[in-house]
Simulated scan of single mutants.
Amino acid sequence: MRKIIDISGYGHSGKTAITDYLKQFDSVFGFPNYVEFELFRVPGGLVDLYHALYDSWNLIRSRVRLNEFDKLIHRIGRVQTASDPLSYFYASAHGYDQYFNNRFIKLSEELITKIITGTQKNTFWPYENLRVHPLKVFINKFKTKFFRSLTSADLYYSDRNQFVGLVSNYVDSLMSELGEEKHTHVILNNAFDPFNPSICLNMINNGVSIVVERDPRDIYASQINTADMYVPDFEKTKTADKIRQQFTGFNDIEYFIFRYKTIRDNVIESQDSRILRLRFEDFVLDHEIYSKKVLDFVGLDPNTKKNDLNYNLQNSSKSIGLWKKYVDLPEIKLIGEKLSQFCYNN
Rank of each mutant, 00 (worst) to 15 (best):
1 M>V: 11
5 I>W: 01
8 S>E: 13
11 G>K: 06
12 H>F: 12
12 H>T: 07
21 Y>D: 01
22 L>K: 02
23 K>Q: 07
25 F>P: 00
30 G>S: 15
35 V>I: 11
35 V>S: 01
36 E>Q: 13
40 F>W: 08
43 P>F: 05
44 G>D: 11
47 V>M: 11
55 D>N: 14
61 R>L: 14
62 S>T: 14
64 V>N: 10
64 V>Q: 10
71 K>V: 10
77 G>P: 01
84 D>G: 08
86 L>H: 12
92 S>L: 13
97 D>F: 02
100 F>N: 10
108 S>D: 04
114 K>Y: 09
116 I>Y: 06
117 T>R: 08
119 T>V: 15
123 T>I: 14
125 W>E: 15
125 W>I: 05
134 P>Q: 12
149 S>L: 12
158 S>G: 09
160 R>P: 15
162 Q>L: 13
164 V>C: 13
168 S>H: 03
171 V>L: 04
171 V>G: 02
173 S>V: 05
174 L>V: 09
175 M>Q: 05
188 L>C: 15
189 N>L: 07
191 A>M: 15
192 F>N: 03
197 P>R: 04
198 S>F: 07
200 C>L: 09
207 G>V: 07
212 V>E: 00
215 D>V: 10
225 N>W: 04
226 T>V: 15
230 Y>F: 15
231 V>A: 00
237 T>D: 01
242 K>V: 14
245 Q>H: 00
253 I>P: 03
255 Y>V: 10
258 F>E: 15
265 D>F: 00
274 R>S: 12
276 L>Y: 09
277 R>N: 12
280 F>S: 01
282 D>V: 06
286 D>S: 08
286 D>P: 01
292 K>F: 07
296 D>T: 08
296 D>M: 05
297 F>C: 05
299 G>S: 12
314 Q>P: 00
316 S>I: 02
319 S>Q: 10
329 L>K: 07
331 E>Q: 12
332 I>S: 02
333 K>R: 06
336 G>E: 07
342 F>L: 15
344 Y>F: 07
